[in-house]
Amino acid sequence: MEHTWRLEDILTVDYKLKVNDRDFSATAEKCDGDRLRVSINGVEKIIAWKRISDAHIFLGADGEDQNLYIEKTGGGKTIHLNGIQYFIKDARDEGMKKHPGGLKETGGKVTPPMPSVVVRILAAAGARVEKGEGLIVLTAMKLETTLTAPFSGTVLSVNVQAGDRVMPGQVLVEIDRDKNTGD
């Protein structure tokens, strides 16, 4: 089959990537057909690839073929290879979430990492809490998890009761941080 070259085909694209916490600088350039010229941390390679489905890429490099599976996840892509997952994001995307699904405690607002049910409240409004002290016990998938104070301070409010169903983003407890401590 005849191939018509277009401008976008011959452009080299530069990437600054983070794989979990490792940095990779890379360039990629389309060659003929199903091949790609890449350079990863300065090492050049020609790779052959084929898209099998939206989620599935068949890739040949260094004389070996591999099946890789690609998932779009919070601000990047998760690549599945031989049972291991590699979370890759563009290092130039500032302000993106660090890792998908992480425990989120922004400022003094304590919110659950996953949908769950409140089992017990351990802190009362007005009480002083030390960093790491238990605030609230949640259950999800039959497992109890204790959300702890991200820093020492005073509990401003407890917004839920035992038995409530709670969602990520919902503020369960709010803490006013101590001014004199560094943590």
Binding site: V19, K30, I47, L68, I84, Y86
Partner: peptide
């Protein structure tokens, strides 16, 4: 922690997926 020995191949897949989007 998982062994990240396939990181370079994963990067290749990322690039291929990015250059030839669905």
């Amino acid at each position: 922690r998982p062994d990240m020995k396939g990181a370079e191949l994963a990067v290749m897949a990322y690039l291929a997926d990015d250059i030839f989007p669905v």
